[in-house]
C-alpha cells in the first residue's frame, strides 16, 4: 500500500529573489497569461522566444534548476503518454513503418510541438509554485476572486477551506496509516480474496477514517467559534497584499507577450 510517506506539501523553495517578492496575484495572472501564450504559439521561432522568457524567469527565481527538472521528472508519464498518442497520429508522408504502425513527418512535427507545449506549461507552473508559498497563493486567489466579483462569502470560504485543508491533508494521511496498522494488528487482511472481498476489506479502514475526519471537523468548528470566527464578515488580515510598481510592470510585460505571439513575425 502506498502512503504519503515523504510527501512534500507544496514545492515552495524559500529564497529572497525578485520573483519571490512579487505579489502572489501578479504571479497568478502572469501564469495564466503564460499558459494562454503557450496555446497561441504557432511556430518554433515563437517557442524559442518563449523558452528564453521561461529561462530568464528560472534564473530570476534563484531556485536551483534541479528543482525545475524534478517537476518535469514527476510528470514524465504525462509527457510519455502525449508522445505515444501523437507519434502514430498519421498524416503526411510516411517516414518509417513497422507492422501496423506508421510514423509520418507531420506526426513527428506535431509530437515535438505538443510535447514542447506541455514541457513549457509545466515549467511555467513550476515558476509559480516554487516561488510562492501555498498560503500566499490561497490569499492571492481569494483576492483575485474578489476582483472578479465573486461573492465575498464564497471567496472567503473557499480560501479558508484551502488553507485548512493544507493543514489537514498530512494529518489525515498519518491517521489513515495509523488506522491501517491498527486493523492489520487485529488480523485484517487487505490483500487477500477476490475483488469483492478486497473491496469489502476496505470498510474497516475507511469507516474509522471518516468518523475521525467528521470528529476533527466538529472539534475544529468548535475551536473556531470559540475564537469568534464569523466568516468573511468584518475579518481583517495581518499581512495585506499590495501591488507595487514592479508588480504592475510585470503584469504589463506579461500581456505584451501575447502581442508578440499574435503579431505575425
Amino acid at each position: 500500500m502506498n502512503f504519503l510517506g515523504n510527501i512534500t506539501i507544496g514545492q515552495y523553495v524559500p529564497r529572497d529573489s525578485f520573483l519571490h517578492n512579487l505579489d502572489p496575484r501578479t504571479k497568478i495572472i502572469f501564469n495564466l497569461v503564460l499558459i494562454t501564450v503557450v496555446f497561441l504559439i504557432k511556430n518554433f521561432y515563437q517557442y524559442a522566444f518563449f523558452g528564453g522568457v521561461i529561462l530568464v524567469m528560472m534564473v530570476l527565481s534563484r531556485v536551483p534548476l534541479s528543482h525545475y527538472f524534478r517537476g518535469l521528472k514527476a510528470l514524465w508519464m504525462l509527457i510519455a503518454l502525449t508522445v505515444v498518442f501523437q507519434i502514430f497520429s498519421g498524416g503526411g508522408h510516411v517516414m518509417y513503418s513497422f507492422w501496423v504502425f506508421k510514423i509520418t513527418d507531420v506526426a513527428v512535427y506535431n509530437t515535438v510541438f505538443i510535447t514542447l507545449r506541455l514541457v513549457f506549461i509545466i515549467l511555467a507552473a513550476s515558476v509559480l509554485t516554487l516561488t510562492t508559498s501555498p498560503i500566499r497563493l490561497a490569499d492571492g486567489l481569494e483576492s483575485l476572486m474578489r476582483t472578479f466579483r465573486v461573492p465575498k462569502e464564497w471567496s472567503h470560504d473557499f480560501s479558508m477551506m484551502i488553507s485548512i485543508a493544507f493543514r489537514f491533508i498530512p494529518v489525515l494521511a498519518i491517521e489513515a496509516e495509523h488506522v491501517m496498522r491498527a486493523q492489520l494488528s487485529r488480523g485484517a487482511r487487505f490483500d487477500r480474496g477476490g475483488l469483492i472481498q478486497r473491496a469489502k476489506g476496505m470498510i474497516p479502514l475507511l469507516i474509522p477514517l471518516f468518523v475521525g475526519a467528521v470528529r476533527m471537523a466538529d472539534e475544529l468548528a468548535i475551536a473556531m467559534e470559540a475564537r469568534c470566527y464569523r466568516g468573511a464578515e468584518g475579518r481583517t488580515k495581518y499581512k495585506q497584499l499590495n501591488l507595487k510598481k514592479s508588480d504592475c510592470a510585470f503584469i504589463i510585460a506579461s500581456f505584451a507577450m501575447i502581442l508578440v505571439v499574435i503579431l505575425p513575425l
Binding site: 500500500m1 502506498n2 502512503f3 504519503l4 510527501i7 470560504d157 479558508m160 477551506m161 484551502i162 485548512i164 485543508a165 489537514f168 491533508i169 494529518v171 489525515l172 494521511a173 489513515a176 487487505f190 490483500d191 475483488l195 478486497r198 473491496a199 476496505m202 477514517l209 471518516f210 475526519a213 467528521v214 476533527m216 471537523a217 466538529d218 475544529l220 468548528a221 468548535i222 473556531m224 467559534e225 470566527y229 464569523r230 466568516g231
Partner: peptide
C-alpha cells in the same frame, strides 16, 4: 458558519488523501 467551513475543509483533505493512497486491488 465555522462548521460549514471546517466540514468542507475536512472533506477536501479526505478526498485529497484518498486520491493519493493506492490499494492493490486487482
Amino acid at each position: 458558519m465555522a462548521k460549514h467551513v471546517s466540514k468542507m475543509a475536512l472533506w477536501l483533505a479526505l478526498v485529497s488523501v484518498l486520491s493519493i493512497i493506492s490499494f492493490p486491488i486487482g
